[in-house]
Design a protein around this nucleic acid. Structure first.
Length: 400
DNA sequence: AAAACGGGGAC
DNA sequence: GTCCCAGTTTT
C-alpha cells in the first residue's frame, strides 16, 4: 500500500470499533433469504451472480427456479446455454447467465466439479470478479477477504465522508484497503453481508433510516446532518436514441424468429427480425429491403412484397430503454396464410438443439408456434411488441 | 479509465 | 419520468 493511502486511511479511522456493532446487528435482523440457508459455495455463487445489478426482491423467484433445475455445478454444466437462458429470461444482463454457465463448465473441466476453495482460485473462474470471489470466499469458506459492492461503497462513503467519485478506481482501492483493516478475522462473511444488508435496508440511496442504524454514532455523514450528499457520483451516462424497425411474420399459427448474434446486446437471445437504425425517422423506409436482408429463405418473397405494397400498416412507436440505449420500436404484421404452405423444417425442436453453436450456420431464423413464445428466451422488448401487436389484432378482429 | 451490458423496483 | 441495484469484461 502506498504510504499516502495509509495516511489517508489513518485520517479516516477514529477509534472505530464498529465492526462488532455491525456483525451483531446483522445477526439480529438479517432477512431470511433463500441463499442464506446454504453455505454451499455453488449456491452462494448463483445468488451473487443473479444479484449483480439486480435487487433482492427481483432475484428470489429466479433463484429458486434456477436451483431447482440446476441444484449443483454438474447440473448446470450439463445443461445447454439455451436452457439456462430460458430460466434467466426477464432478469437482464444475459451475459451473466452465459458466464455462470461457462464458469460451471470451467469448474467441472478443471477440478472435476469440486468448487475452488479460496479467493484466488475462485477469481480464475470466468465471470467471477473480485466482488463475487470475495463474497463466496468469505461467506462459504470464512476466508478473510473483502467483498465491495455498490452498497458497501455507499455505506463507507457516508461513514467516512468520502468526497471523491465513488466510481473511480481510486475510491475502490481506498475502500479495499480500509476494509482489510477493519475486517474481523473470525466472521468475515457476516461482516461483509452485514455491510451489504445495511446498505440494502437502512443506509439506502434515498431516505436512509439513520435512526435504525447500528453505526449511527460512528457515522461522519450522520454527524454532518445530511448523509445523502454521499456517495459523490460524477459519472453520467448518455442514452443513445435508436430506431428499431421489426417484422412480425405470421403463418399458420407460427411466427418467424431470429437468433441474435453471439456477442453484444441481448447476445444469443431470440428476436423478431429487424435492425437498429440511427436515424431521425422511418420516412421512406423500405420494409421490403429489411425483409430481404433479414430473412434468408426466399420462399415468401412474392407474398411479402404483395402485402407490403397493398398496405404497409406500420405500428408503433413502442419505446424500450436499456441502461445505455433507447429503442423506438416500429413494426409491421404480415400474415402469410393466404400464400403457400409454410416450410416447417424448423420448429420448436430445432430451437432446443440449435442452442449453443450457430457459428457457421447462415440461417438463424426459425418458425415457432405462438403458444411457445412464453417458453423461449425472448427479451422483454419483443414480448412488449408481441403483446401489443396481438392485442391490437384481437381488438380489430373483435370490432369487425 | 471508460464503455458495454437489461430489467425492474422505488419514488 | 428519474435513480439505482450483492458487477464483470472488453476496449
Amino acid at each position: 500500500m502506498k504510504p499516502q493511502m495509509k495516511n489517508e486511511i489513518d485520517t479516516h479511522i477514529r477509534f472505530n470499533n464498529w465492526a462488532p456493532s455491525l456483525v451483531g446487528w446483522y445477526r439480529r435482523v438479517k432477512r431470511d433469504l433463500p441463499w442464506r440457508r446454504s453455505k454451499c459455495a455453488y449456491a452462494i455463487w448463483v445468488s451473487e451472480v443473479m444479484l449483480q445489478q439486480t435487487q433482492v426482491i427481483t432475484v428470489i423467484p429466479y433463484y429458486q427456479r434456477f436451483m431447482e433445475r440446476f441444484p449443483d455445478v454438474f447440473a448446470l454444466a450439463g445443461a445447454s446455454e439455451e436452457e439456462v437462458q430460458e430460466l434467466w429470461r426477464g432478469l437482464g444482463y444475459y451475459s451473466r447467465a452465459r458466464r455462470l454457465w461457462e464458469g460451471a463448465r470451467y469448474v467441472v473441466r478443471t477440478t472435476g466439479g469440486r468448487m475452488p476453495e479460496d479467493f484466488a482460485s475462485l477469481l480464475m473462474i470466468p465471470g467471477v470478479g473480485e466482488y463475487t470471489a470475495g463474497a463466496i470466499a468469505s461467506i462459504a469458506y470464512g476466508e478473510c477477504v473483502p467483498a465491495i459492492d455498490g452498497n458497501v461503497k455507499r455505506v463507507l462513503s457516508r461513514l467516512l465522508r468520502w468526497e471523491e467519485d465513488v466510481d473511480k478506481a481510486k475510491s475502490y482501492r481506498f475502500f479495499l484497503e480500509y476494509i482489510k483493516i477493519v475486517l474481523p478475522a473470525d466472521c468475515p462473511g457476516d461482516f461483509n453481508q452485514g455491510l451489504m444488508e445495511l446498505g440494502a435496508t437502512v443506509c439506502t440511496p434515498k431516505n436512509p433510516k439513520c435512526e435504525l442504524c447500528p453505526l449511527q454514532v460512528d457515522c461522519q455523514g450522520y454527524s454532518l446532518g445530511n448523509p445523502t450528499v454521499y456517495p459523490v457520483k460524477k459519472s453520467r451516462e448518455k442514452v443513445k436514441e435508436v430506431l428499431r424497425p421489426t417484422l412480425i411474420l405470421v403463418c399458420e399459427g407460427r411466427v418467424l424468429l431470429k437468433k441474435r448474434p453471439s456477442e453484444g446486446l441481448l447476445a444469443n437471445l431470440w428476436e423478431f427480425p429487424g435492425e437498429e437504425l440511427i436515424l431521425d425517422s422511418l420516412a421512406d423506409y423500405s420494409w421490403y429491403d429489411l425483409y430481404k436482408t433479414q430473412v434468408i429463405d426466399r420462399s415468401y418473397d412474392e407474398i411479402v412484397e404483395e402485402l407490403l405494397q397493398a398496405k404497409t400498416n406500420v405500428q408503433g412507436p413502442l419505446v424500450h430503454t436499456f441502461s445505455h440505449r433507447r429503442w423506438q420500436m416500429y413494426w409491421v404484421v404480415l400474415n402469410l396464410d393466404a400464400g403457400q404452405s409454410l416450410d416447417v423444417h424448423n420448429s420448436e425442436q430445432t430451437i432446443r438443439e440449435s442452442s449453443s453453436d450457430y457459428l457457421g450456420s447462415e440461417d438463424r431464423t426459425c418458425w415457432l408456434d405462438v403458444s411457445q413464445l412464453e417458453r423461449i428466451a425472448l427479451p422483454v422488448a419483443f414480448q412488449k411488441i408481441w403483446s401489443t401487436a396481438t392485442g391490437i389484432t384481437e381488438s380489430v378482429s373483435n370490432s369487425c
